[in-house]
């Protein structure tokens, strides 16, 4: 391994370390404190301005519920987030593969290709509309 590569990988490791520490702190904060009873969690700017629920509204409460294993409550607060988590995890997994096999590329294109992306867009917009109607 050349010096340049070594520096690059240690820089990456440092990034991962910082990222993990921040993630851990957030998990502890969101696990212990209920965002709906504390004032110290940022309110959604869209909701503050328009009084409509945006697709992200309730995600802090949903995370709090998920961290306390209250799946029904999490779903009630933000169903989109709960449904998106497995999909996002899969996406991260696909992004990590450096040299995918042909079969894997086919699945990647099915799940994250052009049509899939448009479906995601449709779901987000439909969710935004429906949650304000019902």
């Amino acid at each position: 391994m050349s010096l340049d590569e070594t520096q690059k990988s240690s820089g990456k490791r440092f990034k991962i370390l910082i990222f993990s520490i921040i993630a851990l702190i957030l998990v502890v904060i969101y696990g212990l404190i209920d965002p709906s009873t504390s004032h110290f969690f940022p309110k959604c700017p869209v909701k503050s301005l328009t009084h409509y629920d945006c697709p992200g509204c309730g995600s802090q409460r949903a995370i709090h519920a998920l961290l306390n294993f209250e799946f029904r409550e999490a779903f009630r607060q933000n169903a989109l987030l709960v449904l998106a988590l497995p999909y996002l995890t899969l996406g991260v997994f696909f992004n990590l593969i450096k040299k995918p096999s042909e079969n894997m590329m086919r699945w990647r294109n099915r799940l994250f290709g052009h049509h899939a992306t448009l479906i995601v867009l449709g779901i987000v917009i439909a969710f935004a509309v429906l949650r304000n109607v019902f």
Partner: peptide, 26 residues
């Protein structure tokens, strides 16, 4: 395509920019 990141932005940060991100991903 930054689809994953854009969805995360939509759900956690700022919905309008996240949706623009998803459109760009497509």
């Amino acid at each position: 395509s930054y689809l994953i990141e854009s969805i995360l932005v939509t759900v956690f940060c700022c919905m309008p920019f996240g949706i623009i991100g998803i459109v760009n991903a497509s």
